[in-house]
Computed example of a mutant assay.
Amino acid sequence: MIRTVLLAASLSALTLAASAFAADKPLRIGYVFAMANAPALIADKEGFYKQEGLDVDLKALGDGPVIQQALAAGELDVAYVGTPPVYQWYSRGLKSTILAKVNYGQAAVMVSDKSPITTLQDLKGKKLAGVKKGSGMDVLLRGYVLKDKAGLNPDQDLNIIDMPPGNMNAALERGIVDAAFSWEPFVSQAELRGTARVLFDVNQALPQYPWYVVIALPKTLQERPDDVVKLLRAHRKAVAFLNEHPDEANRIIADAFRLEPVQGPGGTTISPEQIVARARTRLGWSAELKPADLAFIQRLMNDSKALGFMDVDMSPAQLVDTSYLEKASH
C-alpha cells in the first residue's frame, strides 16, 4: 500500500516536472502562410501573445500537409491550418484537436480577362491550376466546386496542375493554364490588375464557410493547457483587432505579405492596403465554431472519403473541443 502511494506520488511529481519543463519552452506555432491566417500575424505583431505572458516560436509554412508532417515529427505544438488535412491525418493516427475557428471565406476560380470561359462547366477539357492533391483547398476544389457545382469528374474531365498560388496569376496571363483555383491576396491582385476575372466565388455560393482552424496535439493539451488558453485568448484579441481596426490591420497584413502596388487597367496605382481591403470582400475572421461550421466540416469529411483521401467515416465531434476557447473568453 505504501509502495503504491509512493509510486503514485512519484508519477505525479514527474508529470508536474514535465509540464513545468514544457512551459519553460516557447510554444511552437505553425501556420499556413495565407492572408486568412492573419490572426496569427496580428497576435504576434500587436504583442497579444506577450500580453498573455506567452513565449512563442511562430513559423510560416506552405500548406496543410506540410504542417501535419511537422506536427507528426514533433516540431510544432499548435497550428493554424485548413480542416481537411487535420481530419485526414487524424484518420491515419495523428490525433490533433480542433480548438477554434480562424476565418471564413477566401477562395475563387479565376480565368484570364480574355478567356471565353463563362461557366464552371466550360472547364471541361481545360487546364486548371490547383494546389497539392489532398490538401484542404484541393478537397474544396474537387469535391464542392468541380463535382457538386460543375458536375465534372476532377480526375477525368480536366487537367488539374499542382502549382504554388503565387505562380498562378502569371500562368493565367501567359496562357499556361486556362483557369486557377486560388485564394487571397492572389485573387484580388489579379482582379485589380485587370488581367483576370473571377469565374466562381466560393464565398458567394457558401456565405461565410469556415476554413482555417486552430489545432493542438494531445501532448500539448495535456502538458500545457494553461498556455493553450493563453494562446486562444491572444487569438480572440487578434480577431477583434482585425474587425475593429481594419485600416491598421490592413497595413500590417500588406507589410507581412510584402505586397507590391499594382497598376490598374486605367493606369492607376493600387496600394497594397487597397489589395487587402478588396480581399476582405471574400474573407473575414471569427474564433467561434458554430453549428453551421461543423456541418460544413462534415461535408468536407464526406468529400474526402468520396475522393479517396481517407477510408473511414468521421464526424466533427471526434476532434472538435471548444472548452479551451470558452475558458479563453473569461
Rank of each mutant, 00 (worst) to 15 (best):
A40P: 04
N302G: 14
N302E: 12
V66K: 08
A205D: 12
S182M: 11
I215P: 00
D311C: 05
I42E: 01
E173T: 14
A70V: 07
Y80G: 13
V198G: 01
D293V: 05
G264H: 06
G130M: 12
R258K: 15
D313C: 03
T118M: 08
K149N: 03
D303A: 15
K50N: 07
E273H: 09
V86Q: 02
I161L: 14
S135F: 03
E326D: 15
G308I: 13
P116L: 05
T195L: 08
I2V: 13
D113F: 06
I176C: 00
A38K: 00
I98A: 01
N159S: 14
L11C: 05
M314Q: 15
A34S: 13
P164A: 13
Q156E: 14
V213G: 00
A205G: 09
V202E: 08
P225S: 06
N243K: 15
S286L: 11
M35Q: 14
V5M: 09
A292W: 00
L58W: 04
D303C: 11
F33W: 14
F241V: 09
V214P: 01
R197V: 02
Y104L: 01
A295D: 09
A292S: 06
L217A: 08
L54N: 00
F48L: 00
N103L: 04
Q318P: 03
A256Q: 01
L141T: 09
Y209N: 06
T119I: 03
A306L: 14
P218T: 08
A60S: 09
E260T: 07
A295Y: 05
I252W: 03
E223K: 06
G264P: 02
I275T: 07
P246K: 07
K114D: 12
L58Y: 01
Q204Y: 07
Q51R: 13
R28T: 11
A73N: 13
R282H: 10
A216S: 04
D178Q: 08
V139N: 01
G166S: 15
V5E: 05
E248I: 10
N153S: 13
V187A: 09
A9Q: 05
